Simulated assay, not measured.
Amino acid sequence: MRHRPAARDAKLVEQFSHVDALVAGLFDGVFSVEEVGRRGHLGLGCGDHMDGELVVLDGVFHLCHGDGTVSVLAADDTLAFAEVVDFGPVAAELVEAVDSIDALTAAVAERVVSPNLFHAVRFDAHFATLSLREAKRQTKPYLPLAEAVHDQRENTVTDVTGTLLGFVAPSVFQGISVAGPHFHFLDTTGTVGGHVLGIGGATGELAVETYPGVTVRLPTTPEFLGADLELGDVDGAIRHAESDHQR
């Protein structure tokens, strides 16, 4: 019988800004890597000016840029958005032949007590195929997220090994976080990574930890304080931003 971990009452998902702010085009980096790193060693996010896709793995902050390069951020570098946890799963289990994000999400669902809580995921695996995207650095005046993503870099890699990580959030938190699965990836060489658009033929060790809540630290910049966050179809904007724009 599979272990179904309960939520750790003393541990929460730690979030900096929220997705609605990105939808509105608030891309300035306002949180330092040092500040975020004090709250968790596994997670994801995006850089200053929405530059690239953040992968926080074993406490190292990797930024996968829109030109295909990957850099390691310094303590004083800044982030527009981040979501991290003090990840400590009870166990990892072998999962084989995972052919889609939906299949991986289903494997997570089999190992947790409820879809109404937050789940952090780490999948150390080999992938036959992996579709990735990296947002390109934006310049002011910023476009809303749904428009800014149209110049993102999208790429499919094959025969790659690395770590897929991220979160599966309750549907009611759409706009605060990304509802459902939200995964980023970094290969074992630290040179290939990004936001995960699709996976195929994946086999590896899946670890999951459940959390009963999320804390959100909001920016206090003049831009955030004066922003109009009543954005209409936020769900549609987020789903559009999360999709593959080359197909």
Rank of each mutant, 00 (worst) to 15 (best):
D77P: 04
A109H: 13
A128G: 14
T215Q: 01
I238K: 05
A24G: 02
T210A: 04
V178I: 15
L73H: 10
E147R: 13
G204P: 00
L231F: 10
L104C: 13
L218V: 01
R239D: 13
Q138N: 06
L26T: 02
G236M: 05
E147M: 12
R39P: 03
A74I: 08
V72A: 14
S131W: 03
H126A: 08
G52C: 10
V121Q: 05
V208K: 02
L94W: 06
E83R: 06
D48W: 04
D235H: 15
E110S: 14
D99I: 08
F185C: 14
V172W: 15
E34V: 01
S114D: 09
Q138K: 05
P115A: 10
C46P: 13
G213S: 11
V98M: 10
A169R: 13
L63S: 02
T78F: 00
F87M: 08
V208L: 05
Q138W: 02
Q152E: 15
R153K: 07
H126Q: 06
I176F: 13
L44Q: 09
G37F: 07
H126Y: 03
E205H: 07
A207D: 00
P115F: 08
C46E: 05
K11Q: 14
T69H: 13
P170D: 15
A24F: 05
R111N: 11
L225M: 14
H182W: 14
N155F: 11
R4W: 07
G213A: 11
V70R: 00
V55M: 07
T215K: 05
S71V: 15
A148P: 03
G25C: 14
D9F: 09
Q138T: 02
Q174N: 08
P181W: 06
E35F: 11
A74T: 09
G40P: 10
F224R: 01
N116D: 14
A10G: 11
G180V: 15
E53Y: 04
F61W: 02
